[in-house]
C-alpha cells in the first residue's frame, strides 16, 4: 500500500483531469433560458405585451425563426415578437378566453439556434378584465420544437450557472467518503496485523477527510444560501453529514486522550469501524428504505436528477476522480512526513 501511495503516476493523472474539469466545467455554457420576466400578471381580453430577458440566447440573430407561445394545459396561444434587442424581447399575446384549464401559463420560446426553452408557471391571469373581445386562436399547428444547436449544461430554474458547483462542491464529499473508506480499511488491517503504519494511515486519512469535509460544508453553505436562501436549511443530508463530522472529530479526540501507543491505535481503530458502519447506514441505507426521511427535502434537487443528464455526467465523473486523486495526493504527502517523524522519534529512543 505504501508503495502505491509513494508512486507518482496517479498523482500526475489528477493534473490533466483537474485542468479538464475546471476548464470544461467553467467555460461550457449552460442551456438558453428565460432569466426574468417584467410582469407576472396578464389581463384577459387584451393583447398583453410582455417584456422578457433571456440568458445565453441568440434572439436577435435568430429573429426570423423565433416563435413564442403561452401554454396552458392543452391550449397554445401564439405570441408576436414586437421588439427584439440582443437577448431581450417584447412579445404580444392576445388572451381571449376566461376559462383555461390551469391557473398558470408557461412561456415557451423556440428558434433555430437556441432550440426550445421555457419558463414554467410564468404568468397568472389578473383580477380585472379588458374590454376588447376577440376569439381565441389556437395555434397548435404551427408549434414546432427543436433541439439547441450547442452542447450545453442544463439550465435549472433556481440553480442557473451555479449548477457548475456539482464539479466542485459535490466532489469534496466524494473525496471525503473515499478517504474515510480508506481509513476504515487501514483500521481493519491494523487490528489484523498490529503494524504501526496502518494506524498512522487510518489517523491521517481521517485528518485529510475532515479537511475536505470542512470544505464541503463551507462551499455547501455558500451554495445553499443562494439557492435555498439560508446558510443552513434544515435538510436531513446536511444534518447527517454534520453528525458524521462530529463522530470523526470524536475519533481525533479519542486519539488525543489515550497515552499508551498500541492501546491508542487499537481503541481508535475499533471506534473508527463502529463509527463508519453507523455513518454509512444512516447516510445511505436508511433514507432509501424509510418513507419518513426525505433525501430531496427543502427544494433539494435529488442526485438522481443530475444523473440522468449526460452533459453533466461527462464532466462530473472525471471531476470525482480528479478531486479524489488530489485528496489522496495531499494525504500521501502528510503520511510520508508523519512516517519520517515517527522514524526520528524511534531513533531518539
Amino acid at each position: 500500500m505504501l508503495k502505491i501511495l509513494k508512486a507518482t503516476w496517479w498523482k500526475f493523472l489528477s493534473i490533466p483531469l483537474l485542468i479538464y474539469i475546471v476548464a470544461f466545467g467553467l467555460l461550457q455554457p449552460i442551456a438558453p433560458g428565460i432569466s426574468s420576466i417584467h410582469q407576472d400578471k396578464i389581463t384577459i381580453g387584451e393583447v398583453n405585451f410582455i417584456s422578457i430577458e433571456t440568458y445565453n440566447t441568440h434572439l436577435e440573430e435568430a429573429a426570423s425563426s423565433s416563435q413564442a407561445w403561452l401554454k396552458n394545459g392543452e391550449t397554445f396561444i401564439c405570441g408576436v415578437f414586437t421588439e427584439i434587442k440582443n437577448n431581450t424581447a417584447i412579445i404580444g399575446f392576445p388572451i381571449a378566453r376566461k376559462d383555461y384549464e390551469k391557473r398558470f401559463f408557461d412561456l415557451i420560446i423556440n428558434n433555430d439556434i437556441d432550440g426550445t426553452f421555457e419558463l414554467r408557471d410564468a404568468l397568472v391571469p389578473a383580477e380585472n378584465f379588458g374590454n376588447n373581445s376577440f376569439s381565441d386562436v389556437d395555434c397548435k399547428v404551427e408549434v414546432n420544437t427543436n433541439e439547441s444547436a450547442f452542447f450545453t449544461f442544463p439550465n435549472r430554474e433556481i440553480l442557473k450557472e451555479s449548477i457548475r458547483n456539482l464539479f466542485f462542491h459535490v466532489c469534496m464529499w466524494f473525496a471525503m467518503v473515499f478517504l474515510l473508506i480508506f481509513s476504515l480499511g487501514s483500521s481493519v488491517a491494523y487490528l489484523n496485523t498490529g503494524k504501526k503504519p496502518w494506524d498512522t494511515m487510518a489517523h491521517l486519512a481521517v485528518v485529510t477527510a475532515m479537511v475536505f469535509g470542512a470544505l464541503g460544508i463551507l462551499t455547501g453553505m455558500v451554495w445553499a444560501k443562494f439557492t435555498w436562501g439560508a446558510f443552513w436549511p434544515n435538510d436531513p443530508k446536511l444534518n447527517g453529514v454534520l453528525v458524521a463530522m462530529l463522530a470523526y472529530l470524536a475519533y481525533l479526540i479519542l486519539r488525543g486522550s489515550a497515552k499508551d501507543e498500541s492501546k491508542k491505535g487499537r481503541l481508535a481503530a475499533v471506534y473508527n469501524i463502529f463509527a463508519f458502519v453507523l455513518y454509512i447506514i444512516f447516510i445511505y441505507v436508511i433514507p432509501k428504505f424509510s418513507s419518513s426521511l426525505h433525501p430531496g427535502m427543502g427544494g433539494n434537487p435529488a442526485f438522481s436528477e443530475y444523473d440522468l443528464d449526460s452533459s453533466l455526467r461527462i464532466v462530473f465523473y472525471p471531476a470525482v476522480i480528479a478531486w479524489t486523486l488530489l485528496a489522496f495526493w495531499l494525504f500521501s504527502i502528510l503520511l510520508r512526513i508523519e512516517l519520517i517523524n515517527e522514524d526520528l522519534e524511534d531513533q531518539l529512543i
Binding site: K160, M172, T219
Partner: peptide, 13 residues
C-alpha cells in the same frame, strides 16, 4: 445568473 456562487466556491476550495 449566480455565476459568482461558483467563483466563491472555487475560492474556498
Amino acid at each position: 445568473e449566480k455565476f459568482y456562487v461558483v467563483f466563491v466556491v472555487i475560492l474556498i476550495i
